[in-house]
Computed example of a mutant assay.
Amino acid sequence: METTELSELFPLFTVAEPETLEWLLSVADECEFSAGTTLLTDGSWGTAVYFIESGWLRMQRKHGDRAITQAVLGRGDFIGDAAILDEPPRATEAIALTDVRTLGVSAQRFIQALFKDPQLHHKLLQHVVRRWRQAHTLLSLRHQPVLVRLAWTIVTIAEEYGTPTEEGMEIVNLPARDWADLSGIGVDDVANLLAKWQGKGWLELGDRIMCVTNLKQLEHLTGGL
């Protein structure tokens, strides 16, 4: 991978110095994980940052006998940074939903890059704030109708990671339980809403891919949240 590809693929690196990108590429390890593989679990957080080149990841937290889906991440995002800068998360795992390819940078190398490049450091802070805003918005949706909460979740994932096609925006299609966890609504509500929206022609559901064919309509449901 060239430095221009790195900065185009990962928004975090758009402001990084060319020398920083060259150095990161020289110390990064390319890793591939098959669907269902656990990338990070208790004891392995804080050792490296993984930048997602392709594929989809699920962040889940163990709660009793069940794993609750907390986030879904795709191409251009990264995981592991918070565990390096703060305490490692507890009972949290990163699972490959599909085949995933990443660039792995050790914790020490990542911190060195932040010290070397103030612009990269600042960009990371912006990314952290954006994550906080999304979490705050989701929390504020607790009193909104279920269709607003699910629509916001789908729109957010589509805008962050979706692949534009002639038919619409393609994202990973999750099991109903995962959509329910992410949106904070019931599984039956998810099934009913997805079936309704598919019937209206707003999205198409495949085995692994959801094509959002009318993103504007779903955005309208969220009321601009």
Rank of each mutant, 00 (worst) to 15 (best):
V15K: 08
D99A: 14
A35C: 08
A151E: 10
G76V: 05
H220Q: 09
I185R: 06
P88E: 08
G76N: 05
R177H: 07
W45C: 02
E87N: 05
G199A: 13
A96C: 15
Q60N: 02
G199P: 07
R177P: 00
D77Q: 10
I154M: 15
D42P: 12
T38E: 11
R177M: 03
E2R: 09
K196Y: 11
S54Y: 05
I171P: 00
E19C: 03
V190W: 04
P118A: 03
A35Y: 04
G199C: 14
L205G: 05
A107G: 09
Q134R: 11
I95H: 00
A16G: 00
E30Q: 13
G43W: 10
T14A: 13
R66V: 14
R101M: 08
D99W: 08
I111W: 06
R109F: 02
L139C: 09
I209W: 00
L225E: 13
I84D: 03
V15T: 08
L6D: 00
T92M: 06
S44R: 00
L12Y: 04
D188L: 14
L205W: 10
G36E: 09
I157S: 10
H136Y: 11
R109W: 01
T102D: 09
G168A: 13
E159S: 12
R131L: 14
D99Q: 12
I111K: 05
G76C: 12
E160K: 14
A82C: 06
M169G: 03
L138T: 13
A82F: 07
E30D: 12
A176F: 15
I157C: 09
G74W: 04
G224C: 07
Q198C: 13
E5H: 06
R90L: 14
E219P: 01
G168D: 14
P164F: 01
D189F: 05
L225G: 05
F13E: 02
E8Y: 10
R149M: 13
D81W: 00
T4H: 08
E167R: 15
A180H: 07
G162H: 02
T213S: 15
V105L: 03
P11A: 07
E53F: 01
R58Q: 12
A113R: 01
D207Y: 06
T102K: 04
L9R: 14
V148H: 14
S106R: 03
V155K: 02
I111Q: 15
E93F: 11
A91W: 04
L215N: 09
L24P: 02
H136T: 15
Y161V: 08
E30N: 13
G184H: 10
S140P: 08
R90T: 12
